[in-house]
Design a protein around this nucleic acid. Structure first.
Lengths: 219, 219
DNA sequence: TGCCTGCTGAGACTTAGTCTCACTTGAAGA
DNA sequence: TCTTCAAGTGAGACTAAGTCTCAGCAGGCA
């Protein structure tokens, strides 16, 4: 009776959908999957964890991406890495939506999910902090950027899970571009040069040209 | 033996500090407080909740402050409201630091705390969203601002809990001012007028004057 | 005195999670 | 072919959180 790990996850999601999370005991899941209670806990550690089976692997992938990043700014690297997470869930499809239904209705699962999300935030914050000069302003900025990237991700993911958007790729690009604009040097408290352009071109075109140049400049 | 609610909290913190969270059972706490197990659960609902006894009241105070706010911008109102939370914990003093030690070492408590923090973020996000024009850009911005305000608060609180700073008032003002600068109109994607000033004053003074004028302008 | 209300304690019960022990299986090695 | 070792599995005891029910008990009131 080689009931593998995946059978347990399948059985759990099926029973949760049929009877609800609270009304499903671990014994029920184990029995439905054809394994013992012992095996269930050995495999997933807790009833909550079976909902997030490949969380650790995903976090590891994000960490690897960050480590090997060649982006020209810390924020760009984080923005790039966070897409891995979004696309992972999008690729899960209906399974991700089942999980969303569960986490929306069961407090314990929502807490667990938040805890997972905060792990990304801490990872990003640590990475962003390493690029700073160690000043309090830089540390705080790293904190704000990490929180904002995660918030942008969460917004796009949540809207996709609810079926409010069709093209998550496009939405995440836009949302993360907004984050980068918000935290772009010159956007925050920095002051630099004032460039006076004398031109007959419309203001909007001048603005667009300057923005593009600054974006290409990177840092 | 009229053992009130506060006795339970006192007993719980004392035992947690002496033996650790996991090694202290609810029966231990109830016995130490001179009440029954039943009374413990009736009063606090769970072993975790006894660590955060006045959480709901605090959230209510923040909500009231937001509702009655006359700040001239949504972000300013939220920035003002979040200080209630910080100063509440600062006023708790050593008790807040005991809680920090517990939440730092016990995963279940950390999750509970995060869940509490996210409730503020959702509250702020809802408030900020009501000031927007309903566009996706405005909604996303509300999300980013709420996340950043909470992140700034958390940073200052954490540093105070660790004893890294002496003047939380000053630190929170600085941190929240940084948030407001980051999200100030003109800092993000907005474009307006370019004002050319001809003056012999130093650039820094001109910048300061303009910033102050913009800050007073509000929105 | 009798009644009602709210708080309390006792204790049974369910379930998550831990731990220990015994069994199987399958591969490596003499 | 027999031995042995490792890894995975199941059975079941045990602890503790949390729920629920019932019974008592104090105090206010007619």
């Amino acid at each position: 009776m080689s009931a593998g790990r995946s059978d347990i996850v399948e059985a759990a999601f099926r029973l949760f959908a049929e009877r609800g999370y609270d009304a499903t005991s671990v014994d029920d899941i184990a029995a439905a999957a054809g394994v013992s209670r012992s095996t269930f806990f050995r495999s997933y550690g807790s009833k909550e964890a079976v909902i997030f089976p490949d969380h650790d692997a995903l976090l590891q992938r994000v960490e690897d991406r960050l480590r090997s990043s060649h982006a020209d700014s810390a924020l760009a690297a984080v923005v790039d890495a966070v897409k891995i997470v979004l696309f992972h869930y999008v690729a899960e499809g209906e399974r991700a939506r089942e999980r969303y239904r569960l986490t929306s209705s069961v407090t314990a699962l929502r807490e667990r999910e938040l805890w997972g999300g905060l792990r990304y935030q801490r990872l990003f914050r640590a990475y962003l902090g390493r690029w700073g000069d160690g000043s309090e302003a830089a540390e705080l900025n790293a904190e704000l950027m990490a929180a904002s990237v995660v918030a942008a991700h969460n917004r796009v993911l949540r809207r996709w899970l609810r079926g409010e958007i069709e093209d998550p790729q496009r939405e995440i690009e836009h949302a993360l571009a907004a984050v980068q604009r918000t935290f772009a040097p010159g956007g925050a408290g920095a002051v630099g040069a004032v460039v006076v352009v004398t031109s007959s071109a419309p203001l909007a075109r001048i603005e667009a040209a300057v923005r593009q140049a600054l974006a290409e400049d990177g840092s």
